[in-house]
Design a protein around this nucleic acid. Structure first.
Length: 724
DNA sequence: TACTATTTAATTTTT
DNA sequence: TTAAATAGTA
C-alpha cells in the first residue's frame, strides 16, 4: 500500500476529497483545479488504501475519451490493470447492462443502437407513413421532443397532452416511433438510459445485485447529468451506496440537451449525509485570467458560489481588440498567431474559440492566406460518414433483416432499380400488416410489384441472404471486407467522379482496418459483428484522423471544454452572436451563455485575447453589432485595448462600450446617444439597427434597418426611437 | 434515375 | 452566404 504516492502533489482540499470517509461526497471542482486528478486518486485510494475491490467501483463519465483517460490514469497510479473496474460513459454502461439482461429489458438479443442521424431518418419515414406534412411536423422538433421526454424518463403514456392538439400529435408520434423501434430492435441513445433505468426499477433482485456490487460510484461532470441519468444513479446508490460526484455548476453548458445543473443542488437533499468539498485553487491560468473569469461568472444568479485563485503570477493583461469587421478580426488573430509561431512557440498551443461553427470560415481563409497550418475540431466523425453508414447498414441487415432503417438506406444504394414507387408500396404493405420492410418486400415482390422492380427487390434480398451466408463464421474484418465488396458499394463509389469517390473508398477500407483492430469484450455474449456495430454507434470516432502536425486549433467553445491552451482567442464576442440571439431574451439561456463564456476564458493558461467586430456579415447580410455584454463584465484593470490601426479612414464607428472604456467619437446625433450600429425600437416598425445618420439636433435624420419593415429614413425629432 | 434549379433557413452536439 | 433539402426536368 503506497499512501504517499497517492497523496503526494495533492493540495489540502484535494486530499480531503480523496481521503474522505465512505459517505456521499460532492466535489465542486472549478476549472483547472485538478478534477480528474481527484477522481482518479480517489479510485486509487479506495482500492489501494481502503481495500475496496475494483469490482465494487463504478466510474461514469460523459465521453469515451474521458473514460479511457480515467482508466489509464488509475491503472498507472496503481501500477496494474483494473479489468473488473467498470468505467464508461452513461450510455456505454447502460448498453452493457442491456446486453447482459436483454431478456429482462424486453429487447431482442441482437438489438442495435441508432445514432441521432438514424433517428431523424426514422422519424422522417414515420411521417411519410402517416402522411403528415414535414413542414407542419418538423422532424427535428419531433426528434427533440421524443429525446427530451426520454431524458426526463417519460413514456408516451406518462405525458399529459394538456389538451393541446399539437402536443397530442407529438405524443402520438413518440408512440409510433417507439413501435417502429420495437419492431426493428432499435434503441436510440436516450432509450439506452431509459431502458437501463426501467430494467433496475422493475427488477428489484437485479437492482439489489448491482447495488450490492457497486458500493462506490464515481461520477464525472456531474453538472451535466440529465434527469434519467441522475435517477439511474440514485437507484443504484440506494440507501447504502457511496456516490462521489465531481462537477462544476459554473461549467454546465448542455442544458439544451437535457443536462440539469439543479442536480448539483439536489444532491445534498437526496443524500442528506453528503458533505461538500470545493476545489478552488487553479493550476492552469494566470491570476488575471482567473479574476476575469470570476468577475464574469459572478453575474449569474443561481450558483453554488466559488472563487478561483492561484499562487501563480498575475500574468499579462487580457487583450481586447475591436475589429472593424469579421475579416479584420481574422487578420488580427492570424497576425498574432504568426508572431506566436515566429517566437518559437508550438502552434498547437494556440486555440481560436468561437460560439458557432459558421465563424470558422473567415478564420480558415485568413489562416490559409498566411500559410499557417490549422485544424478545425468538430464536423463529421468517422462512423458518421455516409459511406460508412451505408456499409454498416448492410452489416446490420446481415445481423437483423427487420432493421427498417438499414433496409431503406441501402435498398437502392448502389442504385439497383428500386425507385421511390416500389419503396412506397413496400411501406404501405408493411404499415398495413405491421411487419418489417423486409417481410413486406418478400410478400409483395412476387405479385404487386412490376416485373422489373420485383426482380430487383428479389435480387437485393438474395444478395443480403447470400452475404449473411458467406460471411458466417468469418473473422470480423473479413465480414466487413466482404460486405463492402459484395454490396457493390466499392464499385459504386469508384464510378463517382472526382476525388470524392476515392476518399469514400479509402474510408471504406479504413472501416475494414477498424474492424481488424476491434476486439470485443469476450465477457459479453454477443457476436463480434453486433459488438462492432454497437461500438460504431456508441463511439463515433475522431473528427479528423489527420496525421499529427503542429497546427493551430480551431473549435467552438463547447468543444473546448476540458481542454487548455497557453494562448487563447475568444472571437466574435458580440451581442447576438455571443450571447447568441436565441438565448439572449431568456434569463436561464443567458446564464448558460455566460457559463460558456466562463468556460472559454478559463481555457487560457497564459495569454487571452478577446475580439469582436463592429460589423459582421451574417447570413449574407452586413449587420452592426454591439460588443458582447460579457466584455463589459471583465474588470477594466485586467484589460488592455489593442489598437494597432491608428484611426483608419472610415466613418467614426468607434463604439461606446457600456462602461465608456473606449472613447466615443463625435458623430451626428451623438448627444442623443445615437450612433451607427445602435439598436433601436420604433413604435410601428419594430426593432432595427441604425445604418446611417446626418444633420444635427432635432433635424437629424437616421437610416434604420428594421428587422421586419426594411430600411427607412426617419427624422429623429419625430420618430420617437427607443434606444435598446 | 440522375442531374440541375430553386427554395429555405441559419447555436451549441459528450452518446 | 451557403449548404442542404426539395422540386422539376432530361
Amino acid at each position: 500500500m503506497d499512501v504517499t504516492r497517492i497523496l503526494e502533489d495533492l493540495n489540502d482540499a484535494q486530499r480531503t476529497a480523496v481521503t474522505a470517509p465512505p459517505a456521499p461526497l460532492l466535489v465542486i471542482a472549478g476549472a483547472g483545479s485538478g478534477k480528474t486528478r481527484v477522481l482518479t486518486h480517489r479510485a486509487a485510494w479506495l482500492i489501494d488504501v481502503e481495500g475496496v475491490s475494483p469490482q465494487s467501483l463504478l466510474a461514469v463519465t460523459f465521453t469515451n475519451k474521458a473514460a479511457a483517460e480515467m482508466r489509464g490514469r488509475i491503472e498507472s497510479l496503481l501500477g496494474m490493470p483494473v479489468n473488473h473496474l467498470w468505467i464508461g460513459t452513461f450510455h456505454g454502461l447502460a448498453h452493457r447492462l442491456l446486453r447482459r439482461h436483454w431478456q429482462e429489458a424486453g429487447l431482442p438479443q441482437n438489438f442495435q443502437i441508432i445514432d441521432s442521424d438514424d433517428q431523424q431518418r426514422l422519424i422522417k419515414r414515420l411521417l411519410k407513413n402517416l402522411e403528415l406534412d414535414e413542414s407542419r411536423w418538423v422532424p427535428r422538433e419531433i426528434q427533440y421532443f421524443i429525446n427530451a421526454q426520454k431524458d426526463e424518463g417519460l413514456r408516451p403514456q406518462h405525458i399529459d397532452d394538456d389538451n393541446d392538439p399539437q402536443r397530442r400529435q407529438f405524443i402520438a408520434l413518440y408512440k409510433s416511433y417507439q413501435d417502429v423501434c420495437e419492431r426493428g430492435g432499435l434503441v436510440d441513445f436516450a432509450e439506452l438510459l431509459l431502458r437501463a433505468h426501467e430494467l433496475w426499477r422493475d427488477n428489484p433482485e437485479l437492482l439489489a445485485h448491482y447495488q450490492a456490487r457497486f458500493r462506490h460510484l464515481l461520477v464525472d461532470e456531474f453538472q451535466d447529468t440529465n434527469a434519467i441519468q441522475y435517477a439511474w444513479l440514485r437507484l443504484l446508490a440506494g440507501r447504502d451506496g457511496v456516490p462521489f460526484a465531481v462537477g462544476d455548476d459554473d461549467q454546465s453548458i448542455y442544458r439544451w440537451r437535457g443536462a440539469r445543473v439543479e442536480h448539483i443542488y439536489r444532491f445534498q437533499k437526496d443524500f442528506p449525509k453528503a458533505s461538500v468539498v470545493k476545489l478552488e485553487q487553479n493550476y492552469r491560468s494566470t491570476a488575471t485570467i482567473l479574476k476575469a473569469a470570476n468577475a464574469v461568472i459572478a453575474n449569474n444568479g443561481s450558483r453554488m458560489g466559488k472563487n478561483l485563485w492561484t499562487e501563480g503570477a498575475q500574468g499579462e493583461p487580457i487583450r481586447i481588440y475591436s475589429a472593424y469587421n469579421e475579416r479584420d478580426e481574422a487578420d488580427f488573430i492570424v497576425g498574432r498567431l504568426r508572431d506566436w509561431s515566429d517566437q518559437g512557440n508550438p502552434r498547437a498551443d494556440a486555440a481560436v474559440l468561437y460560439r458557432s461553427n459558421a465563424q470558422s470560415r473567415v478564420l480558415e481563409e485568413a489562416l490559409i492566406n498566411a500559410g499557417l497550418p490549422y485544424r478545425v475540431y468538430g464536423g463529421l466523425r468517422f462512423f458518421e460518414r455516409a459511406e460508412i453508414k451505408d456499409a454498416l447498414a448492410y452489416l446490420r441487415l446481415i445481423s437483423n433483416r427487420d432493421d427498417d432503417s438499414s433496409f431503406e438506406r441501402v435498398i437502392n444504394r448502389p442504385t439497383r432499380g428500386v425507385g421511390a414507387r416500389s419503396v412506397e408500396s413496400m411501406r404501405a404493405y408493411a404499415r398495413a400488416n405491421s411487419c418489417s420492410m423486409w417481410r413486406a418486400a418478400g410478400a409483395i415482390a412476387s405479385d404487386e410489384l412490376g416485373g422489373r422492380a420485383a426482380s430487383s427487390v428479389l435480387a437485393f434480398m438474395t444478395l443480403i441472404e447470400r452475404m449473411a451466408r458467406e460471411t458466417q463464421g468469418l473473422e470480423l474484418h473479413y465480414q466487413v471486407d466482404h460486405a463492402i465488396q459484395a454490396s457493390g458499394l466499392i464499385e459504386f463509389f469508384r464510378k463517382e467522379k472526382g476525388e470524392r469517390g476515392e476518399t469514400k473508398i479509402e474510408n471504406l477500407e479504413e472501416l475494414v482496418s477498424a474492424a481488424k483492430g476491434f476486439s470485443a469484450d469476450p465477457a459479453e455474449e454477443m457476436s463480434a459483428l453486433d459488438a462492432f456495430l454497437s461500438h460504431a454507434a456508441l463511439e463515433a470516432g475522431e473528427g479528423q484522423a489527420d496525421a499529427w502536425e503542429d497546427c493551430v486549433q480551431l473549435m467552438t467553445m463547447h468543444s473546448a471544454k476540458g481542454l487548455e491552451f497557453p494562448l487563447v482567442f475568444l472571437c466574435g464576442l458580440e451581442d447576438g452572436l455571443f450571447p447568441h440571439q436565441r438565448s439572449i431574451s431568456d434569463p436561464a439561456g443567458l446564464e448558460e451563455e455566460r457559463r460558456l463564456c466562463y468556460v472559454g476564458i478559463t481555457r487560457a493558461k497564459k495569454i487571452l485575447y478577446v475580439t469582436h467586430a463592429e460589423q459582421r456579415r451574417l447570413h449574407g447580410m452586413d449587420s452592426f453589432s454591439q460588443p458582447s455584454r460579457f466584455i463589459a463584465e471583465i474588470p477594466d484593470e485586467l484589460v488592455e485595448e489593442v489598437r494597432p490601426r491608428v484611426h483608419v479612414s472610415r466613418p467614426v464607428h468607434t463604439i461606446t462600450r457600456p462602461r465608456g472604456r473606449l472613447s466615443s467619437g463625435i458623430s451626428p446625433g451623438a448627444e442623443l446617444g445615437i450612433r451607427l450600429g445602435q439598436r433601436v425600437r420604433h413604435g410601428k416598425f419594430g426593432d432595427g439597427v441604425i445604418l446611417n445618420c446626418e444633420g444635427q439636433g432635432a433635424h437629424a435624420r437616421v437610416e434604420v434597418n428594421f428587422e421586419t419593415a426594411g430600411t427607412k429614413w426617419l427624422v429623429l425629432g419625430y420618430a420617437n426611437l427607443d434606444l435598446m
